[in-house]
């Protein structure tokens, strides 16, 4: 589904990603872990197409297409969804109108019929239930004045509505208490299917207790320095990142 080859990315003239390779197959769940400043968030923004991230080398192929040539909304239409670490507040923009606008834009792009107000309401209510997002938050401005947990649930609600092929969860666990984390994880797990892939970016092992990945990668100094199965996470939990970095330096 997603193939990243030798990806080099500069931010403000400084190289953050330095030859990253990653292959995510359909239906797989991958986790990328790594110390602060290793380039985790840069990777998620580059995949979603945010300005200010300059790709100097390498390629990213998503579902057979060159992802790097696409506008952010085209990527969304193609099925990439980024759940952000710090969801943006949109004062004055009603959450319900925003969700409807977004869902219908994606449906249009996929050649599906747009949902009318009634059908959409029904769908939103059903999915909001799933992520335990209080209905009153649908009537407020997007993320404005939401708590950290509410923002994350609003992200998962959007994911549930847009039904993306590849979901990137950027530090979805940051700032969440255990209950909120469990709700968010349940929402993600409910959407797991053989057609959908996930890329989780996290600093802590904790999230992986709730959403079990198939593959784990360690990102350091802008590259994947180690890949493995679930056991790698346990090792990291026990020993921290230091030993990998040392081994890397030694090699």
């Amino acid at each position: 589904m997603l193939t990243i080859k030798n990806l080099h990315v500069n931010v403000d003239g400084k190289e953050i990603l330095r030859g990253l390779d990653l292959e995510i197959g359909t239906g797989e769940v991958h986790a990328i872990m790594g110390p602060n400043g290793s380039g985790k968030s840069t990777l998620s923004y580059v995949l979603a197409g945010r300005d200010g991230y300059e790709v100097t080398e390498g390629e990213v192929i998503f579902a057979g297409k060159n992802l790097l040539e696409m506008e952010p909304e085209e990527r969304a239409w193609a099925g990439i969804f980024l759940a952000m670490q710090y969801p943006v507040e949109l004062p004055g923009v009603n959450n319900m109108s925003f969700l409807r606008e977004s869902v219908n834009a994606v449906r249009r792009a996929r050649g599906e019929e747009e949902l009318d107000a009634i059908a959409f309401m029904k769908l939103v209510r059903e999915r909001a239930e799933l992520v335990k997002l209080p209905e009153k938050l649908l009537k407020r401005s997007v993320n404005a004045g939401f708590s950290g947990g509410e923002k994350k649930r609003n992200e998962i609600l959007q994911m549930a509505l847009l039904e993306p092929k590849l979901t990137i969860l950027d530090e979805i666990d940051s700032g969440l208490d255990i209950d909120a984390l469990r709700t968010v994880a349940e929402g993600v797990n409910a959407l797991r299917s053989p057609e959908r892939s996930f890329l989780m970016i996290t600093h802590y092992q904790r999230l992986l207790d709730y959403i079990e990945p198939d593959h784990i990668h360690v990102l350091a100094h802008g590259r994947i320095v180690r890949s493995g199965g679930k056991e790698l996470a346990l090792e990291l939990e026990e020993k921290g990142y230091g030993w990998i970095l040392e081994e890397e330096a030694a090699a």
Binding site: R75, F81, G92, Q158, L162
Partner: peptide
């Protein structure tokens, strides 16, 4: 960017944000 990442084209995103600005 947030709106575009949710599939909304740039022009529409600008309109929505302007409407949000005026909504207050």
């Amino acid at each position: 960017f947030y709106l575009r990442a949710r599939g909304i084209d740039e022009q529409k995103a600008v309109h929505m944000l302007c409407e949000g600005f005026a909504a207050e």
